[in-house]
Amino acid sequence: MSLNARLLPLAATLVIFLVAYAVCYAQYPAMLSTRVIGNLLTDNAFLGIVAVGMTFVIISGGIDLSVGSVIAFAGVFIAVMLRDTSLHPLTVFSLLLLLTTLFGASMGAVIHYLEMPAFIVTLAGMFLARGMAYVLSIDAVPITHEFYDYMQRLYWLMPGKGRLTLIGGLMLLVVVAGSLLAHRTRFGMNVYAIGGGAQTASLMGVPLARTTMAIYALSGLLAGLAGIVFSIYTSAGYSLATVGVELDAIAAVVIGGTLLTGGSGFVAGTLIGVLIMGLIQTYIIFDGSLSSWWTKILIGMLLFAFIVLQKGLVWTTAKRRIAGG
């Protein structure tokens, strides 16, 4: 096998994306325009950012269910702070990011030191963050600030009249930074190592406590950033927003070729996963007659296909090893 087995899920994702895009293009040639692409990036910016954090968590063999609630909390927090105080949005952003990062780090600490499953700890975090959002405001709070108007107007006009908005660009930036962090730093290597086997990794000198906390802190930070992006996207903060986004993020990560069992995956794959999900939605909008629930059905089928693919890969690798490969 000349192709590295690790690259296979990524390659599969890429092929699916290209095929899907080709199918869409065959039916609606207008889909192949920078406008559609620009919108795809803008509409899914918050999901893409939070999915990058989720990628790290899942590569390390964990899960973070709190991110959807954290995004909602972030929106309400920003909206309330801008309404009730005279702080500049940038100051509010830094406060928020500090808060969500600490929130993530403390979940990581609980997971590591109390040896609790990440599922339970972040489930608690999910309720906590959602509850905090309700405490701040039950109603949707509109955001009216000239700095917000300014940010929403910012874009780079791509050839073909497509707009790469600030938030779309931010997402791409996060993906690039995430890729570097995952593949080119010791922290990133340690994340993969923990995903490959926490016990072994620890025997090899990986600092488990520090790395686990950093992973969930990163996920918290990116969830906060996704919250900022979402607030720019919607100009409001609402405690009932982004319910279930954590599941969308997990789906995007898995469709992006990251093993749910940890240890293997690519941040770039996650971006493609997000784009595939966005593409399905765009197609349904273009079609106009299909129910939007078809998005969920297709994503469900894709997810299932990827789980089967991953299992198949694990089997073939195991078989080759037994054969003495």
Binding site: A193, G205, S264
Partner: peptide, 12 residues
């Protein structure tokens, strides 16, 4: 760690 490359294992 079976999921890392040989070099990554050696240099972790």
């Amino acid at each position: 760690l079976p999921n890392l490359t040989v070099a990554e294992n050696l240099c972790l």
